[in-house]
Each structure stands twice: as structure tokens, then as C-alpha cells.
Measured scan of single mutants.
Amino acid sequence: MASQGTKRSYEQMETDGERQNATEIRASVGKMIDGIGRFYIQMCTELKLSDYEGRLIQNSLTIERMVLSAFDERRNKYLEEHPSAGKDPKKTGGPIYKRVDRKWMRELVLYDKEEIRRIWRQANNGDDATAGLTHMMIWHSNLNDTTYQRTRALVRTGMDPRMCSLMQGSTLPRRSGAAGAAVKGVGTMVMELIRMIKRGINDRNFWRGENGRKTRSAYERMCNILKGKFQTAAQRAMMDQVRESRNPGNAEIEDLIFLARSALILRGSVAHKSCLPACVYGPAVASGYDFEKEGYSLVGIDPFKLLQNSQVYSLIRPNENPAHKSQLVWMACNSAAFEDLRVLSFIRGTKVSPRGKLSTRGVQIASNENMDAMESSTLELRSRYWAIRTRSGGNTNQQRASAGQISVQPAFSVQRNLPFDKPTIMAAFTGNTEGRTSDMRAEIIRMMEGAKPEEMSFQGRGVFELSDERAANPIVPSFDMSNEGSYFFGDNAEEYDN
């Protein structure tokens, strides 16, 4: 993207840094990872977990959730003011799984939030270390993106479920800051804005008074975040219109849905970061690795190297396929839920299948599930090659597409044709070009129609051997075009429920 120079890199967003050079960025990201790792080690000690239990991804998720809940100030305040039966607002906890007599047992633990905050700050040299908290939120978000298709949420806001490739980060909490905003897809931002506008339509006082002023500035800020994701002048001009509207209503909703559809071809720039579970960072720190000293990046080879040398386990339900569970977590670790499966298959070195073909449910185990038949197995999170994460949407291309997802959002900077089903997408653009945004709409449609099938995206960008740390010898991959490109292809993934 041309304006790259004016933006802070995501590592800076990730670490609240002012302008830093590459070495400083690597050190501050490393410091953040160190903090998460030290916190995780301490929690495993508190909970008396064995090494194996500490490497269980379900335990990692519970521990991450506990610290996120302990620092969720708004919710904590709300819980104190609106006490609900049987919930102690000062405590947080969740299921911890232990191996007892050759069987997995679930144990519900409860801790004072104050105590968890103390352990977290102690692991982070006394700081609140917001960057580390956001990092864990993005890992949870990436896992949700890989596990669930947001059909219901899309339909509720009037969008087409086939636009799911635009929904990265749709389950990120509001408090995820600049680093969170960077990884949100165009569809996620559109959905947040539509929800806001709908509230304004239904509630006369939404934009009024002292609160209304705050609401208005939040609305304009979200519009600017979305505008910054678009790469064409016409899309940005249309966002200006939406932002400046005196009284946002149905016309703005129409414009936003139009823009979301246009992003299936004229893709937005959305950041991709490899955020790993805390149970990967903990053992690495415990083994003596100093992330701050060595430096770390979320968008280069580092996460690949770390996963190459990590042992992570997962509980497996009786009829689940461990290899499929591994694929789910591998995609989440690489922030690749909406990437082209052919690119992923090449990088991973084994075939990556669409969601609907995987015999696996989510990673988390519900409290009512029976533990008797639970097994555990090693997650295979290694890769054959590594590639640089991208934040450009890439230019655009036609490809055989599917009944489910009709476009992709690249996660890796790797040369390819970008699949999208042009006739299906263009069919949504018939007729409606009147109104105050008509010239911009016409211009956007013209650009979409001009998108050429034979153009290559990320020209000359390749993948790298894991021994090639400096990215000196790019390998331009070859793809098996007979395979499906979309992950949520004609899909039956479970729906995400809060």
C-alpha cells in the first residue's frame, strides 16, 4: 500500500510504541512475548500442572481467558453494579484439565481477579502490559475465525453469508486497541457500523446529549479505520460520505453494504499476525530463551520457528480426527482463516481442507461434555516452508469459486491468482447506482469489472525454506488448481455463540 510509510507498523501498534527502528520493534515485541511466557509459567505453578498438562491447549485457553477477564475493567465495573446470582464479580476462573488415573478430569478453578492481575503485572515488570493482553485477544479471535462461520451475524446486519472472507476479527472485544483495529476485516468494521446506525434509528437519543457526542466521535473513528483499509480513492470518498452524514440511517447502511461487497474484489488491507497460545510461549521462556534479547516478529519467520520446536497437546472428542484438529489450530496460529487453501497447503506441506470436510468441533470443551471418553493427542503445528504475512489485500483475480465463501483475504505475501467468483459478486451490483453516491458507485463498479483474471497478485513473492531466515531465496510455489480455494466452501461450520 502506498501510504505504508505514514502508518505505524503493526509491531508498533502491538507494543504501543512511538516510531521505533526494526531492532527496537523486535525487542519490544519480544518483551511482550516474554511477559506472556513468564505469566503462563507462574500460572502453571499456581495450578500445580504437570509439564504435559501445561502444554494442553484447553488449559492455555482457560488461563488466557482468566487474565483477560481480570483486566476487563468495563465488564468488571458492570458486574459490580449489576450483581447477578451466583456470579462473584471479583473472581474469575474456568475449567482446568488434569490427568488422573490414566483419565482426563475437569476441575473448575476460581481465583481472585486481583490475584491474577498481581501475577500478570509481576510477570511483566510491574506494568499492565496491555500489548500482551491484546495479543491474547487476537489469538482467540484468530481461533474463532478458523472455527466458526459468522453466517447468522452477517444475515442479521443485512449482509450476504458468502462475504465471510471479510469477517476477520469479528469476535475481537471493543477494547483491543490499535492492534485489534489493524486485524479487523472490512466486513467486521461494516458490521460494527451498521449495528451502531441501527441503534440510532431505533433509539432517538442515541446521537443526542453528552453521551451522543461520545457516540458520534466513536462512529467517526470507526469510519476512519474502515476508510484506511480501502485502497481505492472511490471507496475512500464513499467512506467520507458515510462519516460526514448528519443523521446516519438506511442510506448509510446501503452504502456500507455496497462497500463491503466491493471489497470482495477491490480488497481492503487487513493486517495478519501470528499470535500463538500462551502454552507455546511459556515452555520456550522456561527453556531459557530470551525473546527480548533475541527479538521477535509476528509477521516473519519467528512464529514458524517457534511452532517448529513446540509440543502442544489437545483434548480430542471420541469421533474427532486429531489431524483435522491440528489443521484448525495451525490455521489459527498463522492467522489464515480466509487465505486461499492452495497457498496454505503449499506452505504447510500437507493438504489443507475446507472447514466442512474437517471432523472436528471447536477447541474448547463445553462444561456439560462427558470427560470419560476424552483422549488427548499432539497437535501437528509444523510447516514445510515459511512466508511473510501481508497486510495488503493483493490485486484481484477471477477463479472458480464456491457456493460458500466467494473470495479470499490473503494472509501471506505469496504470488498467486486470487480466487473470487466474479459473476456471483457482480450480480449483486445491478441497477442500484442512484442517489448521492452514484458517481462513486459507478466508478467502483467500473474498477471491479476491469479486474483481470490473468493478473498475478504479489508478483514474484515466494515462500522460503525454514533454514532461509533472511528470506534470501524465494520459492514461487505451484498450486494444484483442481483443489478448492475457499475454506468455508459450501460450508456447515458451527455458528459462533458468545
Rank of each mutant, 00 (worst) to 15 (best):
Q4V: 01
T6Y: 11
S9N: 15
M13V: 07
G17A: 05
R19D: 10
Q20G: 14
A22M: 07
I25M: 01
A27L: 02
A27Q: 00
G30V: 05
K31T: 02
M32I: 04
G35E: 09
I36Y: 10
Y40I: 09
Q42V: 08
Q42H: 08
M43R: 15
M43L: 09
T45D: 04
E46Y: 14
L47G: 07
S50H: 01
D51K: 02
D51F: 03
Y52K: 01
R55Q: 04
L56S: 15
I57N: 08
I57M: 06
Q58P: 06
N59H: 15
S60T: 01
L61K: 06
V67H: 10
S69G: 00
F71H: 01
D72P: 03
D72L: 03
R74N: 07
N76M: 02
N76L: 12
Y78S: 08
L79N: 13
H82L: 03
D88T: 05
K91N: 13
T92I: 15
G94A: 07
V100G: 00
R102V: 03
K103E: 14
E107I: 10
L110S: 10
L110D: 07
D112I: 07
E114Y: 04
E115C: 11
R117K: 15
W120N: 11
W120Y: 08
A123K: 09
N124P: 03
N124F: 06
N125H: 04
N125W: 15
D128K: 08
A129N: 00
A131P: 12
L133M: 04
T134K: 13
M136H: 07
W139K: 08
L143F: 05
N144D: 09
T147E: 10
T147K: 01
R152S: 03
L154N: 03
L154S: 04
R156N: 07
M159H: 06
M159V: 15
D160C: 01
R162K: 04
M163C: 15
G169K: 05
S170N: 01
R174C: 06
S176Q: 11
S176D: 14
A181L: 02
V183S: 15
V183T: 06
K184M: 12
G185I: 10
T188D: 10
M189D: 09
M189H: 05
V190K: 10
M191V: 12
I194Y: 14
I197P: 08
G200E: 13
D203Q: 07
R204F: 01
N205C: 15
G209N: 09
R216S: 02
S217E: 03
S217N: 04
Y219L: 00
E220C: 11
R221L: 12
C223T: 15
N224K: 02
G228L: 09
T232W: 10
A233C: 06
A234D: 15
Q235S: 11
R236S: 05
R236T: 05
A237T: 06
M239E: 14
Q241M: 06
E244P: 01
G249E: 14
I253H: 03
I253V: 14
L256D: 14
A260L: 10
L264C: 05
L264W: 09
S269T: 14
S269P: 08
A271L: 09
H272E: 08
C275A: 12
A278G: 08
V280P: 12
Y281I: 07
P283L: 00
A284G: 14
V285A: 03
A286D: 05
A286Y: 05
E294A: 01
G295H: 10
G295P: 10
G295E: 05
S297M: 10
S297Q: 10
P303N: 07
L306A: 04
Q308T: 04
R317A: 15
R317F: 11
N319D: 08
A323H: 01
M331S: 15
A336Y: 07
A336I: 10
D340W: 11
L341S: 12
L344M: 07
S345M: 07
S345D: 02
R348P: 09
R348W: 08
R348Q: 12
V352F: 10
V352C: 07
S353A: 01
P354I: 07
Q364Y: 02
I365W: 08
A373T: 04
A373K: 15
A373L: 02
L381Q: 05
R382S: 06
S383V: 13
R384G: 15
W386L: 06
W386C: 05
A387V: 14
A387P: 13
I388E: 06
T390M: 06
S392Q: 06
G394V: 05
N395P: 06
R400T: 01
A401I: 01
A403Y: 06
I406H: 12
I406A: 12
V408P: 09
Q409L: 02
A411M: 09
A411H: 07
A411Y: 09
V414W: 04
R416H: 00
N417K: 12
P419E: 09
F420I: 15
D421E: 04
P423N: 15
T424N: 02
A428M: 06
T437H: 03
S438G: 15
S438K: 09
D439P: 06
R441L: 09
I445M: 14
E449N: 10
G450A: 08
P453V: 01
E454A: 15
E454C: 08
V463G: 13
E465H: 10
L466A: 01
E469M: 10
A471Q: 10
A472M: 13
N473E: 12
P477M: 11
S478H: 08
D480I: 09
M481L: 03
N483Y: 14
F488K: 11
F488L: 06
N492I: 02
A493H: 15
E495G: 13
N498C: 05
